[in-house]
């Protein structure tokens, strides 16, 4: 198979490369659609799959380059921005080691000689993980969530790129701890709080201490929240609002039950989907307008789904690979 003496025209190669990067994109949503479209493309022409395999073969060879070769390519084409000298110092190297050993789900850790520390953590659907960061702060990462950590230039910055995380921040006035999430930044002052991202909103629920939530790119817009308060950011309307919360609501998910108080059904479903083995889909705008109060046990999502029609005017259709919730048909119109 290797070195097949074949050439492909530039356009076809580009198409095959395009599918290659598409199929590998782990942003799960719609991946089944992509697979289907790819299969259609493959079926279109015999040459398509051959070109794809040709790219595939190259992709595999890239993966077998040894560490020194990889390092040199990175140095030449993607050198890290040189971080300035700072306080974190030699501790960073040791900390990186601890992360690499202790965090077996660490995707990537990186510590430079001058102490910049970077790491990315991710979980799969249905899995929570506890992480201890280099500064001693503790994080529980919810299902299907991703957290990027960057300690540099005297700042402790983490970005919640997807899902939900509960933070217990080690107190250190000198080095602020910041969580970025979908349009806002949460700055703590020695605290425990939960950050949850769903499609159109970010919820910051404080269980201890105090946080300041700032709108990214608009430092004038901030909102402070203390224990049992919750800040809600609506990414569509760009509204920040303050409400109340309970410890259960903020972090019940850490003990496998998701607590909701008057939350939009789409937000509830997005959270449930981080624990469900089958994706749950909402169909129709009328369902999106509903709000839900109650508890979902992550080990009995099916039971919860079965019970939903008792609470809402909807029907549940379960297929081999998805659960669809749709508005109940007005079947009893004439009675």
């Amino acid at each position: 198979m290797t070195n097949t003496p074949r050439t492909f025209d530039e356009h076809l190669l580009l198409e095959a490369a395009d599918w290659w990067t598409r199929l590998r994109d782990p942003q799960g949503t719609g991946s089944e659609v992509i697979t289907r479209l790819w299969l259609d493309w493959v079926a279109q022409d015999d040459g398509h799959l051959a070109a794809f395999e040709y790219i595939n073969d190259f992709g595999e060879r890239l993966g077998t380059l040894d560490a020194t070769a990889r390092r040199q390519l990175v140095n030449e084409f993607a050198p890290h921005a040189t971080p300035s000298r700072h306080w974190w110092g030699a501790a960073a190297a040791a900390a990186a080691l601890v992360l690499a050993i202790g965090g077996n789900f660490l995707l990537r850790g990186h510590a430079t000689n001058d102490g910049m520390l970077q790491a990315t953590y991710a979980t799969v659907t249905g899995q929570n993980r506890d992480i201890v960061l280099a500064d001693g702060s503790k994080v529980t990462l919810g299902g299907a969530s991703r957290l990027r950590v960057r300690f540099a230039d005297g700042k402790r910055q983490v970005a919640l790129e997807a899902g939900e995380a509960y933070f217990q921040v080690a107190h250190d006035m000198q080095h602020p701890f910041e969580v970025g999430a979908g349009g806002i930044t949460v700055r703590d002052i020695g605290t425990a709080f939960d950050v949850r991202r769903t499609d159109g909103e970010v919820a910051v629920a404080v269980t201890q201490g105090q946080v300041r939530v700032a709108v990214s790119g608009d430092t004038a817009r901030t909102l402070d929240a203390g224990a049992e308060q919750r800040v809600l950011w609506n990414a569509t309307t760009h509204a920040l609002s303050l409400g109340t919360t309970t410890p259960e609501q903020a972090a019940g998910w850490r003990s496998n039950h998701l607590e909701f108080v008057d939350e939009p059904l789409p937000v509830v479903i997005a959270s449930v989907n981080r624990y469900s083995n089958k994706p749950v889909r909402l169909e129709g705008a009328e369902l999106a307008a509903l709000s839900f109060t109650g508890t979902v046990h992550v080990d009995d999502i099916d039971g919860w789904l079965r019970a939903l029609p008792q609470v809402f005017p909807l029907q549940v259709d379960t297929s081999a690979h998805a659960v669809t919730l749709s508005a109940r048909k007005a079947a009893v119109q004439r009675r």
Binding site: N56, G59, E60, L62, G63
Partner: peptide, 17 residues
């Protein structure tokens, strides 16, 4: 019909034939 595509699909994801 699909085994060849299936292997290609998996190789793409895994980087290993």
């Amino acid at each position: 019909e699909h085994n060849r595509a299936l292997v290609a699909f998996l190789q793409c994801r895994l980087g290993s034939l």
